Each structure stands twice: as structure tokens, then as C-alpha cells.
Simulated scan of single mutants.
Amino acid sequence: MARRVSMADVAEAAGVSGQTVSRVVNDSPRVDPATRARVEAAMARLGYRPHRAARALRTGRTQTVGLVASTLATVGNSRMLQAVADAAAARGYALVVVTLGAADPDIASAFERLHDQGVDGAIVLNEATDLVRDAATPADFALVVVDSAADDRFGVVVTDHVGGAHAATAHLLGLGHATVHHVAGPEGSFAAAERERGWREALAAAGAEASAPLRGDWSAASGHAAGLALPADATAVFAANDQMALGLLRALADEGRAAPSVSVVGFDDVADAADYRPPLTTVRQDFDRLGERAIELLIGRIDGARDDAAYEAVGAQLVVRESTARPAK
């Protein structure tokens, strides 16, 4: 078995002291940039990896963060998991994932379990964020939530759901549709409520009538059911996510009015959205940016910077494809 590369090996290769290598490993500001670059180059060349357990004994931190979600079955949550995992790895942090269920029936027990495992802090995703407000958290446990109203107790990173939904609705109105129907996400979802708000605000700004939303549960099946319940005179629909838009597209095709004879816009820009039939106009969430900012904000709070950038909104971009068109005359 090959011998593990030590700090002494790195120090010799970089021509510095062991203490300097230790400072670089522990991200100390007391190292000039040129020396830091030389040490990091030696680490990469030798394949040096800091010993996590030893580091935890020195610093009181495990370099491990948690992620809590109600489910990982939704596309948005699974993409956020990947983005957070990538961002954590890039910063040298390990990730522990907890989904609420039999082992952790409530979010407070999930926090306690993560805390007992020595996790330094956690990110809470989407639907689970609504549970944080009434939950007890360990006093020394840093917390960041994705998609929530601002709260002094934890950091918040959100997509600009309102702006994205407004842009989607305004796009359809700009094509000449008299109004836009909405397939909304589930009750109690922050993202669903914000996207519905953006839809309503765009309609109000244009003086267009808002009908009662058809409500789904983020699944394609619920989008299909909503499509079957869509009024016969509907010419444009904004669906609160791409999966529901997919089901909606099938329902419209089954009824002989396939998009873009009825224009459809989704939200998320999932990997397959460009390959829907027709390719889906949608609002792109920047999941990579959300994951990066959530990790950066969490590490800042772990390090004690609790007042630094406590809230950040990440922009969402309208992507126009073939599922939208001017209404038929």
C-alpha cells in the first residue's frame, strides 16, 4: 500500500516550512499569494489530500456540510443536489444528504442527526424550507435555505421566480394572446407562490384578465390533468415547471390542438426541454449559480460572517423555442 503523502513531503517539494503548508491547508491569510501558489502546486503534483479527521481535531470543524430536502424525486431538487455537491467539492467540503421520512420525520430531527455527525452547517432545499421557521436548530449550527422569504436567523438564496414568471407571461402577451392561463405548483411551495405572483403581476400590468389557476404537484401527470381541464378557448398557458408543461403538451396534442396552436411556456429549462415536441419555451434557472452561492454563504456563516450577504436573488432567463407563437386569427 502506497504511503500517504504528508505535509512534510509537500513542504520539501515547495521549499517551505511545514508550518507554511499547514497555514495553506487551513486557508490562513498569513501566506503571501506567490508562496500559496507554490504550495498548492506541490500539493497537486504530489496528490496531497488533507487528513479530514486530523483537521477537525485542530480546527473544531469537519469540513462537512449537510443538505436537507423533502424529496429528491423532483427535477429541481435533484439538480440543486448536483449543484450543491459540485460547489461543496470545489471548496474541499464533503456533503451529507438527508431526506425527510421515516428516519427523520421532521426537520428538527434532521438537524439534530446532522449535528450529531459533526456536520458544520446545512442547506435546506425548496419545499423543506417552509418547515424551518418553526423548527429548533442547534445553537452552533449554520443554516442556509434555498427559496424562502428573508429571515434574520439564516442565509437565503433564491431564484428570481417573480421576474422569470413575469417575463414568461409578458412574452405570451407580447405575441398577441389576450390572456395567459396558469398551471400552478402545489400549495405551500414558496417557488410556486412566487411564480404565480409574477404571472398575476404581468397580467395586471397589461390589463389582462387572470383566470383561476389550475394547480398541479410538479409532476407531468398533474400537468396532463390540468391540460385536460384547460378551457376550450385558451390560447396560451404558463406552467410553473417544465415537467407539468410536458404533461400539458401531451394533453393538448391528444385533444388535437398541439402547441403552438396553444402556446406553452414552462419554468426550469430542464436538460430535455429543447427536445420536447415542440421544443419548449421556458425560463432557465441557474442551478449552478444557486449551488455555488448557497455553499459560499453557508461557509461564510460557518466562519462567523453572519451579516455578510444574508440574502441573494439569482436571475432567471427566458429561453424562447417553438412551443410559443402568435395566436391563430
Score class of each variant (00 low, 15 high):
S261C: 11
G266R: 06
S263I: 05
F238W: 01
M244K: 00
G256E: 07
D269S: 04
S261H: 13
T282A: 02
P260T: 05
V265W: 05
T281F: 03
P260V: 05
V283C: 03
G247C: 12
V262A: 03
L249W: 08
L249H: 08
T235M: 07
S263R: 00
D254R: 02
A258R: 06
L248T: 08
R277S: 15
R257I: 10
D268W: 10
D233C: 14
A234I: 12
R250Q: 15
P278E: 10
V237D: 02
D242L: 07
A274K: 12
A258V: 00
V265R: 03
L280H: 09
A240W: 01
D242V: 02
M244R: 00
T235A: 11
G266F: 04
P279V: 12
P278Y: 09
D233Y: 15
A259W: 10
A271T: 15
S261L: 11
E255F: 03
P260D: 10
T282D: 04
D272R: 14
A273I: 11
V270S: 11
L248R: 01
A234V: 12
M244W: 04
N241V: 06
D254V: 04
D269C: 05
L280T: 03
S261R: 14
P278D: 10
P260Y: 09
V262I: 12
V283S: 05
A239P: 03
G247S: 12
A240T: 04
A240N: 04
A273D: 09
N241T: 07
R257A: 09
G266C: 12
A258L: 03
A273K: 06
